[in-house]
């Protein structure tokens, strides 16, 4: 990471010489490179900042500005997010497209393989987590700069998105995935009551908490898009993110999670839509893991995070989706 890019840009913004201290890359954030550092000015001004920028290769091709606009949309609201500072869609400021935000002090995230990352605070954090999701879904997509969408298009647009990714990246027969997609195509869900802001990767591991029961920030908005709120809910409640607990996100019983979401969103769970989106969540996961594996196989990346995605989550979702097919 070229610290001189950061120092040059911040010096111009602050109007005084700025030095960069403690620049370190986080291990996490598969679709972005994430760094934290302290910016220290000659006057003594000091800020702890986080940079997210595009890597040469990532799990998911995403819109540079969309993530930043979504964070801007919720900054200062009841949905906790990091404070956004600046986005550059070119390489000038950060060496590659990316954006800057203030560090969320004292935050910790749950790891995928941690058995009980939230401990005694699971229920309290879960209540805030699913309430925040409802608040996101209650917001106007136009406020986040998202394009308009007809409710009838929401489900098949997402299915088409993942089908296209699968066509691009598949490298071996995937009968379970193909059968699930055929079911999704043949059994479209009812359209949502309204189009919502869909975070796109709302799950355990993509938020920070303070270790004492308080949700600090919802992170990783790079897959934000307009759509059906059931999409986020189904992804957040997928067993992959439950830490083997049987609880939604490893935090709340499913009915309690849905009740929190309904109360905050003003929406009601539609059982037919829920059934469809839970299958779609597993299809989405599998396609992401296949794309990750393809990056490695083709030699475009040597990031172990992508190797991990192509092995453990891949097998998890192949198994859960195969079992799900047996219930359809």
């Amino acid at each position: 990471m070229p610290a001189e890019h950061l120092a040059r840009w911040l010096s111009a913004q602050w109007g005084e010489a700025v030095a960069i201290h403690g620049l370190k890359r986080f291990h996490g954030g598969s679709a972005r490179q994430t760094y934290r550092f302290d910016a220290v000015a000659a006057s003594g001004r000091r800020e702890a900042l986080v940079l997210r920028r595009d890597p040469p290769s990532s799990l998911i091709e995403t819109d540079r500005l969309a993530e930043y606009r979504a964070i801007q949309c919720f900054a200062g609201s009841a949905v906790p997010v990091p404070q956004p500072i600046f986005c550059d869609t070119g390489p000038e400021a950060f060496g590659s497209p990316g954006f800057l935000m203030r560090e969320v002090a004292g935050g910790q995230a749950g790891g995928l393989l941690e058995p009980d990352p939230y401990g005694a605070h699971a229920a309290a954090i879960g209540q805030q987590f699913f309430t925040a999701l409802g608040l996101i879904h209650a917001a106007d997509p136009a406020a986040a700069g998202l394009p308009a969408m007809a409710p009838a298009d929401a489900a098949l647009a997402r299915l088409a998105h993942w089908q296209a990714a699968l066509v691009a990246d598949r490298f071996q027969p995937e009968p379970v995935l193909d059968a699930a997609i055929a079911w999704l195509v043949g059994n479209p869900p009812p359209p949502p009551a309204r189009i919502s802001i869909v975070h796109g990767d709302y799950r355990s591991g993509n938020f920070l908490h303070d270790g004492a029961g308080r949700l600090l920030a919802i992170l990783d908005w790079e897959m934000v898009h307009p759509g059906d709120a059931h999409e986020d809910l189904a992804w957040a409640c997928d067993p992959l993110w439950s830490h083997s607990s049987g609880r939604a996100g490893g935090m709340l019983p499913l009915d309690a999670a849905i009740a929190a979401w309904e109360a905050a969103s003003g929406l009601s769970l539609n059982p037919a839509a829920w059934r469809w989106w839970r299958v779609l969540a597993q299809v989405q996961g599998l396609v992401i893991w296949i794309s990750a594996a393809r990056e490695i196989i083709d030699g475009r990346s040597h990031d172990p995070v992508l190797m991990f995605a192509g092995t453990i989550p891949y097998r998890f979702h192949t198994l859960t989706l195969a079992r799900t097919l047996d219930t359809l």
Partner: peptide
């Protein structure tokens, strides 16, 4: 073969969820 805990269903009093 991964040696990890088996997938656990996320369940509750909601109808229509297959997973």
């Amino acid at each position: 073969a991964l040696g990890l805990p088996p997938p656990v269903r996320v369940t509750g009093e909601v109808t229509g969820g297959p997973a």
